[in-house]
Write a protein that binds this DNA or RNA. Structure first.
Lengths: 217, 217
DNA sequence: TTGATTTACTTAACGCTGTAAAGTAAGCTG
DNA sequence: CAGCTTACTTTACAGCGTTAAGTAAATCAA
């Protein structure tokens, strides 16, 4: 009515474009809501109790609708874990960026590691005990900020070696020693009746002391 | 016919007794066969793939017959794990009984620990990663030979402290340090793509070296 | 504006799971 | 020989992940 041919055409195109964008956004929103419900239910029920049908019920959709947004149950849980890896990596990175001596930084990284395990036990179990194999998968698109957590520790060790604050030795050996120690503590705490939460940090600090005496030149 | 009253009576009693014994033995046999099938299937399929109905099928009984011999699936798997704990405890005890210095013995115990994890990965996962809470349960009757594995390590540390071979320090700290380290290595190997089997023993020995330098007086 | 097509989702169904309750056949007992 | 116990099976239920078929609404071409 109030526009010639070509103008009407472009307006129509723009409308179509906006409509498509709105639809795409709605899809993203729904996907995010599925992921949110999945995360909440996972944090309540853990890996064993986690159920696709309950996730669907929580968001008011049919069970099979989830398959339109995630490959399967495994894929959905994988994305739940990815949020954990992001948060975990940030915690470690923050500790690594703290000022102080190399040993202090390494100790702080381990402490951040341990506290993550205590704060989010179900996530930790999923990420490093039950489905640690996901660490071998390429990071899906949209999760680029997931930090290579092992790399953070490794770099902190490397810095200590470079600056001479750590006794010369194999980078991999030092890194794996620190990692195995803190993961051992956390996972034994989470999986067994040993090492209750109250003693865990104290135990860790004393371990650091024993190990650290030796890492010093 | 060929015996007076009292003799016949005792014979009958003996027959009844034998019959009851045979029945009791048959029950034990069947229970053992269930446990055997369960162990075999568990070692094939692991914790996640383990199914009561498949155990029943393997021994040619109906699914519900298992409930006549075990409380439920959890109870059956618990007894599968108990066999693992027995074997694990023996391995550790053997290493602890080896002659040598305290540090050598401690190193040998850890090596036995690590090799158990490599030799029976599914059992290790069940015992220490997935259902480590069973360690807090009282040992069921018939499994008295299950050795307190943590105690074996603890005693070896104590011996080293007593003899002056280890630098004076807290028993619990030393013990938990060694345990957390080797469990960390094994469980990260089993659960993640890091620490493949080929490097695991080497890594462990180098960790022992670093830690041991410090445990020495 | 209308008819065809695509999109987004649901319903129905399959085969599997652990487990409780009811049924059954054999053996033992008085 | 009747009655009870033992040992096991059959049936059934509620839940699970997942596939395939069906449906209603939105979009598009004319």
């Amino acid at each position: 009515m109030s526009g010639e041919g070509t103008a009407t055409s472009t307006r129509q195109q723009r409308l179509q474009h906006n409509s498509a964008e709105r639809r795409a956004q709605k899809k993203l929103d729904l996907r995010q809501s599925m992921l949110g419900a999945a995360t909440a239910l996972f944090e309540r029920d853990g890996f064993e109790g986690f159920s696709l049908r309950q996730v669907a019920e929580a968001i008011g959709y049919s069970p099979t609708s989830i398959y339109l947004y995630f490959r399967d149950k495994e894929d959905l849980l994988h994305h739940v874990a990815l949020e954990g890896f992001r948060s975990f990596g940030q915690d470690l990175q923050r500790a690594a960026d703290q000022p102080g001596s190399a040993r202090e930084r390494l100790c702080a990284i381990g402490l951040a590691y341990l506290r993550f395990g205590l704060r989010r036990p179900l996530h930790y179990r999923l990420m490093f005990m039950v489905r640690g194999d996901w660490l071998g998968l390429p990071t899906p698109s949209g999760y680029d900020s997931v930090i290579d957590s092992f790399g953070v520790l490794e770099q902190a060790v490397q810095r200590g070696l470079d600056s001479g604050e750590l006794r010369p030795g194999d980078l991999q050996v030092y890194t794996s020693l620190l990692w195995a120690n803190v993961h051992g503590l956390v996972s034994l705490h989470l999986a067994t009746p040993y090492f209750p939460a109250e003693v865990l940090e104290g135990l860790y600090l004393q371990h650091q002391e024993v190990i650290g005496r030796n890492l010093s030149p």
